[in-house]
Design a protein around this nucleic acid. Structure first.
Length: 309
DNA sequence: CATCGATGTTGAG
DNA sequence: TCAACCTCGATGG
C-alpha cells in the first residue's frame, strides 16, 4: 500500500476540496451500499490520517474509516487543489481541473483524462469502485481497499488505541518517549518493530528498509538491545522522511543527490532508494551486494557491510 | 492473453 | 505460517 505519506496526502486532498461540503456518497460496486447510505448527504467536518488509516468524519458520530491495504487507491477528479510535488512546494495551491491517482504510486492523469473529466462531470465510475464521494465540483473514487466502513467514535478510539505514534500528527517529546518505550520493551528485531503499526504507525516495507539503511543499523538487533539515542535518531529520521514524502508525494529516501539528480529521481523509481528492491545490486556506499530475506512474508533489504552493527 | 507480484492486514489453523 | 482479500502494472509467450 501507499505508506503513511500517501494517506496523509489523501487526507489533505479531502481537507482541501471536500471539507465543509455536503458529500453524496455511493457505492457503484455495491459492497459499501449500506455504509454509504449512513453518511450520504452529510457534511464532511474533519479529514484525518493516522498511520495508514484514513478517517473522514461526517458529523460527530459517523466516521468513515478507510485502509487501502496493499493495492487500494483513490482517484480524484474535478476541481482539485494541487498538493505540490517538489521539495520546497507548499500544499494548497490554486484549484485546477485535474485528475489525480493516489495509490502505490501517485500520478497526475494525462491531459486527455483531465479534459474528459471537465467535459463530463462527474465521470462514470470505471471498474470496481467501492465508494464514490461527490460534491458539486469534485469526486473521489475508492477502489480495492482492505477496509471501508462507517464507525462511531468509540470504535474509532478502538482503532487508534492499536496504533503507535505518527510523527506527522505528533512529533512532541512525549511522542518520542513513547516510541522509545515501545521499542525497548520488545525482544523482537527492529526490522519487525518498524513494520508493527502498534509501534511505528505509518511505516511500510520501503520506509522500513530505507530507515534502517539510513541509520546504518543491523535489521536483526532486538528493540530491547537498542540504545535510547539510536531509537530517537530513528524516530527523528522517520519524521523527516515522512514529512518529505507528504510534501513531494514520493518516497525519496536518498539524500546523496544534487537538486537535479533529486528531481530526476522523483520520476524514476529505480533510483529513489538506498536498498529497497536492490537485491544483489551493489550498495551505493560500499559496493557490497544488497541482501534480501523474507521476514514475516515481507522482503527485507539491507547492506550486510554498512549495516553490520 | 495469462501470470506474477506489490509500498498490507486479518484471521484461520 | 499461510491463505485470502481484490486491483493493476509489468512481464512473458
Amino acid at each position: 500500500m501507499p505508506e503513511g505519506h500517501s494517506v496523509h496526502r489523501i487526507a489533505r486532498q479531502f481537507g482541501a476540496d471536500f471539507l465543509g461540503k455536503e458529500v453524496e456518497v455511493s457505492s457503484p460496486q455495491g459492497r459499501f451500499s449500506a455504509g454509504a447510505e449512513l453518511i450520504s448527504g452529510l457534511e464532511l467536518i474533519r479529514s484525518q490520517a493516522v498511520g495508514k488509516q484514513l478517517f473522514l468524519h461526517f458529523g460527530l458520530d459517523k466516521i468513515m474509516r478507510v485502509h487501502l491495504g496493499i493495492y487500494g487507491a483513490w482517484d480524484f477528479a474535478g476541481e482539485l487543489t494541487a498538493l505540490g510535488t517538489s521539495r520546497e512546494s507548499s500544499i494548497g495551491a490554486p484549484r485546477l481541473a485535474r485528475a489525480v491517482h493516489i495509490g502505490e504510486e501517485e500520478k497526475d492523469r494525462g491531459e486527455s483524462q483531465v479534459a474528459e473529466a471537465q467535459a463530463d462531470f462527474p465521470p462514470d465510475p470505471v471498474g470496481q469502485v467501492r465508494a464514490r464521494l461527490l460534491t458539486a465540483t469534485a469526486v473521489a473514487d475508492l477502489r480495492g481497499p482492505t477496509a471501508c466502513e462507517v464507525l462511531n467514535p468509540d470504535e474509532v478510539a478502538g482503532v487508534l488505541n492499536k496504533l503507535g505514534p505518527d510523527p506527522a500528527n505528533d512529533n512532541s517529546p512525549a511522542a518520542k518517549e513513547e516510541i522509545v518505550a515501545r521499542v525497548q520493551r520488545r525482544r523482537v528485531a527492529i526490522a519487525r518493530l518498524l513494520m508493527d503499526q502498534q509501534v511505528f504507525a505509518g511505516v511500510g516495507n520501503i520506509y522500513r528498509a530505507e530507515l534502517l539503511y539510513r541509520a546504518r543499523l543491523n535489521p536483526f538487533i532486538a528493540g530491547a538491545e537498542l540504545r535510547t539515542e539510536t531509537i530517537e535518531a530513528l524516530w527523528d529520521d522517520w519524521a523527516k522522511q515522512l514529512e518529505l514524502g507528504i510534501r513531494t508525494g514520493k518516497m525519496m529516501t536518498r539524500d546523496d543527490l544534487t537538486d537535479e539528480e533529486f528531481t530526476e529521481a522523483l520520476t524514476d523509481e529505480t533510483n529513489r532508494h538506498w536498498v529497497y528492491g536492490r537485491v544483489n545490486q551493489p550498495c551505493r556506499t560500499c559496493g557490497t551486494p544488497i541482501a534480501m530475506e523474507v521476514l514475516s512474508a515481507r522482503k527485507l533489504y539491507w547492506c550486510p557491510h554498512c549495516q553490520s552493527r
